[in-house]
Design a protein around this nucleic acid. Structure first.
Lengths: 347, 347
DNA sequence: CTGAAAGCGCTTACAG
DNA sequence: CTGAAAGCGCTTACAG
């Protein structure tokens, strides 16, 4: 139970604490035999460095690079991640971690690669990234592996890498939650329209999983017996959306609820407002524009994936890894949250 | 920007660092004039102790006493607080904080006072308490003030004290959230039954606020035009509850939804299960028994107040105060969360 | 390849 | 009433 110090190891190994330190940090210049001995004793005594003492002497600043898409008015989701990161940094005080942000244009491979190069030139202690561009991300991870720089994924997971952890939404479950809400409020014989709305259907992975979850709910539970109509709208331009939606509503007069599987829910909300039709509307992400329509009562529920919490956790995990070289959990789905107009006031 | 050390203060004041330390910690044995001078310089330079160095030398263990009701099978809510506290302690590593728990019997004044005496004999560095027994709590807080022991309230707030912070549920908003859910799922002309069910109507404050919030929702929004029927059941005995509910349902045949304003929602759920009636049922707290009925589809929604997060925050706040003597926010309502059967699987 | 010493910022006896 | 020294566990030059 009592703390084991390098001094204790040194005594047992009959060497000086300097030597112990050298082997513990792989700083070379140690005879293989000595190294062996010290390592064994350290393991045997279950040595854990005292990170308070470490922090005091080194005044080390942990450099973490964050590689995520550029947020913006049309992409608020990625705007909240930095907030969560700052929160984590604050909570990690009095240890100092320095974040360097690298924002890339969504779906711009060249830009993504440019940023990864910047990171590799900077050589941080660890990286947090959203590996949205699969091929490029794998390539980047390989290089990080070479440099022995640990990395954590947020938002999207890809295997074939040595990421130490993944933190993201359980999109499938998020689809089921949306389904259960619609099922609760909708007359059973009404039809449900599922709108997959996103520029170039970006982030298709998440949208697909949400769709699957949504439909799976009605396969094994729920009281709705209406049709489930799925449409894809690969542009978010309001005019185009309106036309597309008009044609749908012309053909289907029994639609009682709409699920929008992306953060673009507000575009559909605007359409409904204009046309003065009032089906149940459920969508994703607590963005400014979405909340606006939540308050107007046009969007009934938003499913949030707590982006701030996600990136906050990512930073804490990475820090934990950097200081102790061990990690508690590899994968972690962040539970989604149900947001309506009454709950939004307390957030 | 650069760190100010006691050494810097000592130099400016022309004294030794030992003296600076003595005045900073009020350890006496310092000439009034010296004291004055050092204090001024410290303020002027905006000295903040380096808590890493502090931790290393003192190996101080922060003693925190937690005074909350005894949890149990019939009171799961208070069982989750210790979990949140342990989580905070873990996150606060590598600093050591030692928690001492003092559980009191709900509504037993003598027992409460006994525990407060125990705490005062122990003289912790700080206290976290649920001041449910108002008079006794105020009395206790006065004594803590005398000992200069800081304290934070959770769950219930009382003024007339010098608590450094309060963390708890916004019960009024919690009532509104429940109302909005029922309103979403219920046919507008149906009646709503509000059941205030609790042994001796304990914790009346919260139940009242939830009722007020619930009704306020329908006053300024919502589509329901049915009656709102409120009943009080001061015992949680299943048989008594069944009889009471039977008589209500006999008199009112138009009830389409039930709100239970307490964690005893499962008692009403069991009643409904037995009688095979299926109104919408919404209640409070994510307890084992409630979740059981959520899964059966008898309870439709639970409003959770995240007790774990509450007490986790309380510990972190108190620790922050103990180390820096400053606190960011005084009051903080923890937002409630909406839980249904689909979301529960991800928690 | 290895050891001994100094120092991180603070606190704690001890000496005067 | 005040100062100087030792020490917390670790890392970083420096000397050999």
């Amino acid at each position: 139970m009592k703390q084991v110090r390098i001094k204790d190891i040194a005594q047992k190994a009959n060497v000086s604490i300097g030597t112990v330190d050298r082997v513990l940090h792989n700083r070379g210049e140690v005879a293989a035999k000595t190294r062996e001995k010290v390592l064994n004793i350290a393991k045997e005594m279950n040595y854990q460095p005292n990170i308070v003492a470490q922090a005091l002497t080194t005044k080390k600043i942990y450099k973490i690079s964050v590689l995520i898409p550029k947020g913006g008015n049309d992409n608020i989701y990625w705007l909240s991640h930095p907030k969560g990161i700052e929160k984590a940094v604050k909570e990690l005080q009095p240890f100092s971690v320095k974040i360097n942000y690298y924002f890339f244009e969504l779906h711009n491979e060249a830009d993504f690669l440019k940023r990864t190069d910047d990171i590799l030139n900077n050589l941080p202690d660890g990286v947090i990234l959203a590996p949205i561009l699969k091929k490029e991300a794998i390539q980047f991870c390989k290089k990080l592996d070479e440099h022995k720089i640990p990395y954590i994924f947020i938002d999207t997971f890809i295997d074939q890498t040595n990421c130490i952890s993944f933190i993201g939404e359980d999109a499938f479950q998020g689809g089921r939650v949306a389904a259960s809400l619609i099922d609760f409020g909708l007359a059973p014989e009404k039809d449900i329209l599922i709108v997959n709305l996103a520029k170039d259907l970006e982030n298709t992975q998440h949208l697909n999983r949400r769709n699957q979850g949504f439909l799976s709910y009605f396969l094994d539970s729920g009281k709705n017996i209406g049709m489930k109509i799925t449409i894809e709208i690969p542009v978010t331009d309001q005019k185009v959306v309106n036309e597309k939606m008009d044609s749908i509503f012309q053909k289907n007069t029994n639609i009682g609820a709409i699920l929008v599987s992306s953060a673009k829910t507000h575009v559909i909300a605007r359409y409904l407002e204009k046309r003065k039709i009032k089906p149940i509307l459920v969508g994703y992400e607590v963005t400014k524009k979405n909340v606006e329509y939540l308050k107007k009562g046009i969007i009934h529920f938003l499913i949030g994936q707590k982006p701030m919490e996600q990136s906050e956790k990512a930073v804490k995990r990475l820090f934990e890894y950097l200081t102790t070289r061990s990690i508690s959990m590899k994968h972690e789905f962040q539970p989604v949250e149900i947001i309506n107009n009454e709950i939004i006031t307390t957030l």
